[in-house]
Amino acid sequence: MRQLSNISTLHISDLNVWYGKRQILKNLTFDVLANQVTAFIGPSNSGKTTLVRCLNRLNDLNTEFRHTGEILFNGKNLYSPKRKASEITKQIGMVFHKPIPFRKSIYDNVAYGARMRGMKHTAKLYDVVEECLRKAQLWTEVCDNLKSSPDILSNGQQQRLCVARALAGNPEVLIFDEPCEQLDAAETPKFEAIVQTLKNQYTLIFVTNKRRQAARVSDVAGFLFCGELVEFGQTEQIFTNPKDKRTEDYVTGRLG
């Protein structure tokens, strides 16, 4: 049995989310604990993306977005009017479902994340870039090509570059929103291995619609269905001994 840290990085209670008049998420309550991988599974359109975008305030970009309920980040209100969304996104990074390299060199892509938190010194910047590329297990593949554009990289490498870029911003929490959706079978295990190593230093939230992937990478899992958090608990329990009928149907493949 894995030793659980009981520090709650994110505390969500009674979260309801609307886009315009349509309610997307209904009464979500859960905790994300530090240095664990928390996975969210669920069929398409169940609200997984919507949920994680609430957690780093990316939904603020959407003028239709409205929410009630409470989200505490390290005990402080995430949506407090005093806090700027850009301050939150610096602490809660995100990797999207497709690789989004910027039109800059590989080096500058990663350095961009570091510059965002005000780093300027070049020698130190280089160290940070190297460290982050190593954490994303990309360093050995790109160390000779740091000045070239990321379009020489494969999809999987580009996605790892995005991980390195997010890490360079030195976030506390890192959100992955179906990061392996566009990766091939050979790249996916590599990516999952990275997630396992990052767990020691970061708090990870991992959205996926592949059940087995969630079972492999996560410590805690939540099953979202039509905007409801049907079940939330230890991954092992969710996959072997689900309490809810719908969870059982989903993890065994009868649903979604």
């Binding site: 780093n56 990316l58 970009l61 700027k84 969304a85 850009s86 301050e87 996104t89 610096k90 990074g93 995100m94 999207f96 989004i100 910027f102 961009y112 994340g113 965002m116 938190r117 995005c162 870029r165 997010a166 911003g169």
Partner: peptide
Amino acid sequence: EAVYALGAN
């Protein structure tokens, strides 16, 4: 969105 997600204003 990727730029916003890195903490840009």
